[in-house]
């Protein structure tokens, strides 16, 4: 069985700075595996340990992204693949999905694609659905539990954790799955593998290797403004605590909050 995990490297989100034009300035900020992708990697390892075969981590990005791919290898991924080309530098989600889809087709034997539900830098959340649509594969989004991956019947059964309901779904393989936080408990990279994986140079496929061309972003950011400030709250006054609490409760009742 061949599982592919699509992962990206992101700046540690609690330490990024904001540029004057409100874009993200990640210069000098520590890079980490996108939080949700780390859960996808762990889920990939769990099913790879069960069924054997290959677990490939795939990234589209610059050379420096290899650092986080090596971490995934130290966690337990068996293979890595970097998609790198100057033409890939400014893609939007759809165009990125087209490139990754071309790589998946070129790999040829992929049974399952796992990825995080969104990245913590771009926040589009549209990558997995776009990839599934382009490949024509079933898409299972917001997966909070993978119940079974069955190489015999070539099916996957999983729980989709939606806002008000947990949906159990089954789909034929190959399929695209996006996972949510806390689907599992990602393991630490094995330090015993560090020396070995630190030397790994993932194979690199370019636009020419993939036969993709004419990639233009369909969405471009034209302006960034901060959201309007929230109006300040109302302060409840009164001579003592009991009066203030009564006023507050009346107010909450009046607005049907309690």
């Amino acid at each position: 069985m061949h599982i592919v995990v699509c992962m990206k490297q992101v700046p540690r989100d609690n330490s990024v700075k904001i540029n004057p034009d409100l874009s993200i300035n990640a210069d000098g900020i520590e890079k980490i595996i996108n939080l949700f992708d780390e859960y996808a990697i762990e889920e990939g390892i769990i099913w790879n340990e069960k069924h054997g075969g290959k677990l490939t981590v795939l990234s589209m990005g610059a050379d420096e992204w290899v650092e986080q791919m090596r971490r995934a290898l130290a966690m337990g991924a068996t293979d890595s693949l970097l998609l790198k080309d100057p033409a890939f530098a400014t893609l939007d989600t759809i165009a990125a999905a087209k490139v990754v889809a071309a790589a998946i087709r070129k790999l040829g034997d992929v049974d399952l694609i796992l990825t995080g539900r969104n990245s913590t830098d771009d926040e589009s959340g549209a990558f997995a659905p776009a990839l599934a649509r382009i490949l024509g594969w079933p898409q299972l989004t917001y997966v909070g539990k993978v119940i079974d991956v069955n190489p015999g019947s070539k099916t996957i059964t999983a729980e989709r954790h939606l806002e008000t309901v947990v949906e159990t779904v089954t789909a034929p393989l190959p399929a695209v799955v996006s996972v949510i936080k806390d689907i599992n408990n990602p393991r630490y990279p094995s330090l015993l593998k560090i020396k070995k994986v630190a030397k790994v140079e993932p194979p690199v496929w370019t636009a020419a290797d993939l036969g993709v061309s004419g990639l233009v972003p369909t969405v471009t950011v034209t302006q960034r403004v901060p959201p309007p400030p929230r109006p300040s709250g109302e302060t409840i006054d009164g001579p003592d605590a009991a009066t203030k609490v009564k006023k507050l409760v009346d107010k909450l009742l009046e607005n049907q909050i309690i």
């Binding site: 980490i32 650092e67 090596r70 971490r71 130290a74 020396k195």
Partner: peptide
């Protein structure tokens, strides 16, 4: 100022940091 360590030492650092 970040001290320039080898890739393997950087990986060690990141893992220890997460553990901590």
């Amino acid at each position: 100022i970040e001290y320039e360590h080898s890739d393997e030492i950087k990986m060690l650092r990141q893992t220890v940091r997460e553990f901590v």
